[in-house]
């Protein structure tokens, strides 16, 4: 099952040229770009591993693409995403976040039902990948 998270998640995977264009857009807005990766695809997992520090003071997408390429090469079987952080007062948050790399095989999620008091059913998602310990997920 294809993971859909962040901006553009229902589009086909972006090509490098398209990723560059998005980075250019973010840089044009003055946002700081960061590259992150994880092997825990749960939608509530907001804390991905940082690939280096967020990049401030960049003018061109080539610098970010360099990090994306390096991160993909080092973590080929993990999810990699780009975050664009807006430091403007009042925003101070991530304005744009999208996946730029995913593992070859994505087993997807299982729906878990827990019966609660009064026969209420509580639902949660469980990623099949996380059954294995970190580092051994996704082959």
């Amino acid at each position: 099952m294809r993971l859909t998270q962040g901006t553009f998640s229902y589009l086909p995977d972006l090509t490098d040229a398209q990723i560059s264009a998005q980075i250019e857009y973010a840089l044009g807005k003055g946002w700081a770009l960061g590259v992150e990766y994880t092997d825990d695809p749960h939608p509530r997992n907001t804390y991905w591993e940082m690939w280096g520090l967020p990049m401030f003071d960049l003018h061109d997408a080539a610098g970010v693409m360099q990090e994306v390429t390096a991160c993909r090469a080092a973590q080929p079987q993990k999810y990699v995403r780009i975050n664009a952080f807006d430091a403007t007062r009042g925003w101070e948050t991530v304005r744009l976040s999208f996946i730029v790399h995913r593992p070859a095989d994505e087993p997807g999620f299982r729906l878990e039902r827990t019966e609660d008091r009064g026969r209420t059913i509580r639902y949660t998602l469980h990623a099949y990948a996380t059954d294995k310990p970190p580092g051994r997920r996704y082959g």
């Binding site: 990049m55 003071d57 960049l58 003018h59 061109d60 997408a61 080539a62 610098g63 970010v64 360099q66 990090e67």
Partner: peptide, 8 residues
């Protein structure tokens, strides 16, 4: 530094 200089 190189990243910062990219495009320039």
């Amino acid at each position: 530094i190189l990243k910062r200089a990219m495009g320039g």
